[in-house]
């Protein structure tokens, strides 16, 4: 399963990369192909292409911040999750999202 997402935090310094790495690592362990774009202080890092967006089962937004480029995900199921929960329990977050999308 392909999953894409975006992380962003208030200062864009620490939690943005931490959430992205945590989710990608959890994806590997659960055998999902996870790619998270970081919208932090360096500008967009690890940018999700339109093709990747189209191929994704759903979009995971790890943030309560304003996210740019949401038009890439038109028609996709978008799930917003608290960024701290993504760092603390990334596997549980992915599993829950996958279940939620499956049931929809």
């Amino acid at each position: 399963m392909n999953i894409v997402g975006i992380s962003a935090c208030p200062a864009g310094l620490a939690h943005t990369p931490m959430a992205a790495k945590a989710l990608e690592k959890a994806g590997k362990e659960l055998d999902y192909n996870v790619k998270i774009e970081q919208q932090g202080s360096m500008g967009p890092v690890n940018v999700i292409t339109q093709e990747e967006a189209d191929d994704a089962a759903f979009v995971l937004i790890a943030s309560d911040q304003k996210i740019t480029g949401m038009n890439r995900f038109k028609g996709k199921k978008v799930i917003r999750v608290d960024i701290n929960v993504c760092i603390k329990a990334p596997k549980a977050v992915l599993k829950k999202c996958v279940t939620a999308v499956g049931e929809a």
Partner: peptide
């Protein structure tokens, strides 16, 4: 404790802080 100026922190510096943050995982 990380300290960064509001603007022009420099990509290399920000990358290093990012590396440190992810090491904490």
């Amino acid at each position: 404790a990380l300290m960064v100026p509001e603007a022009n922190a420099g990509t290399t510096h920000l990358q290093m802080l990012s590396n440190l943050a992810t090491e904490l995982l």
